[in-house]
Design a protein around this nucleic acid. Structure first.
Length: 271
DNA sequence: ATGGTGGTTAGACCA
């Protein structure tokens, strides 16, 4: 098992449209593993060759036409494992792979939680009901993983900013999907159920503001800085002590034709 | 202020 191990997560909002940006990120930051969300790319059209040429020849992908889609790219050997159909839907919102072997093996789970639509009412908005059901399933998954796989890592675009300082204005976002009490409580319960370590918040505790997403609809995103922390890295209870450092690549939001999310990176020292 | 912008894919749908 390599030590240190760097894992990144990035909602790229179309892997084909932003292929050059992903390659630039890999060249500049060379993480060992990159987990992507919103690839929006069927498996037979995924740019496997371009990533292999960049040194990321080990790949686990799960894509459908048009929406969602997740992938794990690695420059060290990985073994793809189960893809979960969350909420019973084959909609490419989870993929997992194992890095390392035997007692040192680490299983990486990459999730893309539904955004949930605009109206935070599960009765009136089926997309919000889907999101809440997904989070409940994430709680059950966390409980099982805590018991069976304490060396797991869970990353992804969870589309929820759980803490007060994960958003630019706690009060103004309490009724905005991504920061409503039912969502933030749900995600906090998933963390508890899994005894997960919220890696970026260990490194940057509250009340520091930490964001990984800025809306496309906000002009002058940098100056206004109305961000939210939607992208997360959770370490299983056996890996919490290995956390070495982390980084949020805010500058990629300023690249030409950017994703609205930026990469979140964590480095573990596995001794 | 119920707009605003962006991606996929061909008229909406999703974020």
């Amino acid at each position: 098992m390599p030590s240190p191990l760097t894992i990144a997560t990035w909602n790229i909002n179309s892997v084909r449209l932003r292929l050059d940006q992903v390659l630039r990120f890999l060249l500049e930051q060379h993480p060992d593993v990159l987990c992507l969300q919103e690839t929006k790319c069927p498996d037979d059209l995924f740019p496997r060759g371009a990533f292999a040429k960049a040194g990321y020849g080990y790949q686990a992908i799960a894509g459908i036409k048009g929406y969602n889609g997740v992938a794990i790219l690695s420059r060290r050997p990985i073994t793809p494992c189960e893809k979960r159909d969350m909420c019973g839907k084959p909609d490419a919102r989870h993929i997992a792979a194992t890095i390392g072997q035997g007692a040192d093996a680490i299983r990486i789970h990459n999730f893309y939680v539904p955004a949930g639509g605009d109206l935070p009412d599960p009765e009136a908005n089926p997309k919000f009901a889907h999101k809440l059901a997904f989070v409940e399933e994430l709680q059950r998954f966390s409980e099982t993983t805590r018991r069976n796989d304490p060396r797991a890592i869970l990353v992804g675009d969870l589309n929820i900013a759980p803490l007060e300082h994960d958003v630019w204005s706690h009060k103004q976002l309490l009724d905005v999907v991504s920061h409503t009490p039912v969502e933030t409580r749900g995600l906090t319960e998933a963390i508890s159920a899994g005894e997960w370590v919220d890696a970026m918040r260990v490194l940057k505790p509250e009340p520091e503001k930490v964001y990984s997403w800025w809306s496309y609809r906000s002009p002058d995103w940098d100056k206004a800085d109305k961000g939210r922390r939607l992208d997360h890295v959770w370490l299983g209870r056996a890996l919490g002590d290995t956390l070495h450092s982390g980084q949020i690549l805010r500058e990629t939001r300023g690249w030409e034709r950017p994703s609205d999310h930026v990469p979140v990176m964590v480095t573990l020292d596995l001794g």
